[in-house]
Amino acid sequence: MNTRLIFLEELNRLRHDILAMAARVEEDLGKALSALRANDTELAKEVCADDAMVNAMQLKIEDETAKVIATQQPVARDLREMVTIFKLTSNLERVGDHAVHLAKTVIKLSGEPPFRSLEHLERMAETGCQMIRACVNAYLNQDAEAARQAAALDDVIDAGHRSLTEEVLNLMREHPQLIKKAVRLLAVSGNLERLGDHITNICEGIIYMCEGKHEELNE
């Protein structure tokens, strides 16, 4: 007899909520990227305003997960999925925060002439969106290999961060009057680099869920 119908229903609801949260975070990061490209402060403000919603989604999913653990008492792979959901939502929430950081930078840099280094930020943010999609798909498909591939994209973000840092340091040497602006760029680049690390953490959680082992990715 299958006694899991209620558990499976609740798990499906959780997965649906996680998909909705991930879609929202990806949309925010995409909006921040568009705002950066178009120097659109209104769009950037939308991203900042959305942060509270993302945080609320995280808390709702975590509350629901705690209820499922308390009432269904999952074990083995089911339990590992519950553990992974907590890791996934907290890291996804941090990704949302980094989208907000990018949006705030767009607002602060508005009216300034565009930097060439912004191209690096754009590529990093684009890759971040790809990583979010790939890692949530890996979670929904319960696919550890897809999680490894999603985490591998972090190399692109890291490379962008290194190039941007180098360029901005040169810029600061040549144009000390731009240091304040350059420091903002470095900070947001650092945030996007962390964004990649958060998604990598999620990918590690997916591997733990699928295979029951802890695997360090992108060491």
Binding site: M1, N2, R4, F7, V75, A76, R77, D78, L79, K213
Partner: peptide, 19 residues
């Protein structure tokens, strides 16, 4: 056994898939 059972039949039993 309760976090990462080696045998699928164990996993199925403790997870309530049968029994």
């Amino acid at each position: 056994v309760f976090t990462d059972p080696a045998d699928k039949r164990t996993e199925d039993y403790i997870s309530g898939r049968f029994g």
